[in-house]
Design a protein around this nucleic acid. Structure first.
Lengths: 148, 148
DNA sequence: TTCCTAGTGTTGAGATGTCAACGCTAACAG
DNA sequence: CTGTTAGCGTTGACATCTCAACACTAGGAA
C-alpha cells in the first residue's frame, strides 16, 4: 500500500485524496452522467448509446458519410464500426452502399429518430452535467480536459 | 480559442463550446486516460481493466469482502460482479465462499498480482492524469466531480 | 501482365456489460 | 407449520467491444 500523502509535510486531517482516488472519482462521475443522459435520451427512444452516437454524427454530417470517416470522427476501430453498422442496418436505421469505399446513410426512420432525439440530448446534458457546474468550473474543466 | 466571455447570447461564431461539446470532451478525456493507464498497468500484467479494479478494491479492503459490499463500493450491478468473479475465479485470482452472503477473497496469485501492479498503477495515474493538472485544477476537479 | 503494398471492410471468437427470470436464505407474520 | 417478503446471488440470452485473420480494391513497380 502506498502512504496517502499530499505533499512533503502535510499534517493529517484533510485526508488529501491521492491520484488514484481522483481518478476513481473521475470514472464514477463519467459513469453516472453517462447513465443519466442515456436513460433520458437514447433509451427513451429505444436506442442504445452507440446507436445514438452514430445517428448524431451522421446527422451532423448531413445524413451520409464514408464508413472510414465516421470511424475517424469518433475515434472508433474499423471492426467496431462494422459490427455496429451491421446491427443498425438490421434495425433499419442506416443503409450501406459500396462506392469505392462504403457510404453509410440514414434511412428515413433513422432521420426521424435523430430529429426527435436531438433537442432532448442537449437538454439532458445540461440537466445532468453543465447545470451542476459554475461558469468558473466549466471554464477550468474545459481547459483541463483538452489538455489530456 | 477566443474570448472566454459569454455575457448573453453570442451570435453564430462557435466561440463558446456548448454543453454537448463539453460533454464530448469529457468522454474523450476519460477514454484517453483510461486507455493509457490500462495499457501501462493491467495489460502489462495480463489483466483486464475489470480484473484490476476488483483486485485493487479487494487489496484496499485487506484481501476479502462480502460480494455485495464489493459491488456497492464500485457502484456495480449484482450480475456484473457475479459474471466477473466467475471469470476471475476461473483464472485463479479470487475464491468465493458461502457464509451468510458470499465472501470474496484474493488467492495467493491474486495477492501477488496486485502487490506487483499497485505501485505502477499509482505512477501511471500520475503520469497520464494528475501530473498534467495544476494543484488549483485538481482542487476544482475534485470538488466538482463529487457533486455529479 | 504479374506482383507487391496500402487502405478498407468483414468475419468469428472470446471477453465484457445489461436485462429478465429464477433460486436460495433469513426474517417475520398468520 | 405455512406463507410472505426482502435481500442476495446465479444463470441464460443478447448486445457490445476487441483482437486476429481474412478478403477485396486500387495503385504502382517489376
Amino acid at each position: 500500500m502506498s502512504t496517502p500523502r499530499g505533499g512533503a509535510d502535510e499534517p493529517v486531517g484533510a485526508a488529501v485524496p491521492g491520484p488514484v482516488d481522483l481518478w476513481s472519482a473521475f470514472k464514477r462521475a463519467h459513469e453516472v452522467v453517462r447513465a443519466r443522459v442515456i436513460a433520458d435520451t437514447a433509451e427513451a427512444a429505444g436506442l442504445s448509446e452507440p446507436d445514438l452516437t452514430i445517428l448524431v454524427n451522421l446527422g451532423k454530417a448531413g445524413g451520409a458519410l464514408r464508413q472510414s470517416e465516421l470511424a475517424a470522427s469518433l475515434g472508433w476501430d474499423r471492426t467496431r464500426i462494422s459490427h455496429q453498422l451491421t446491427r443498425m442496418s438490421g434495425r433499419g436505421l442506416v443503409t450501406r452502399e459500396r462506392a469505392g469505399g462504403v457510404t453509410v446513410s440514414l434511412t428515413d426512420a433513422g432521420r426521424e429518430t435523430i430529429t426527435a432525439v436531438g433537442p432532448g440530448l442537449d437538454a439532458a446534458v445540461r440537466r445532468h452535467f453543465t447545470d451542476k457546474l459554475s461558469a468558473q468550473e466549466i471554464e477550468t474543466l474545459n481547459s483541463l480536459l483538452r489538455r489530456l
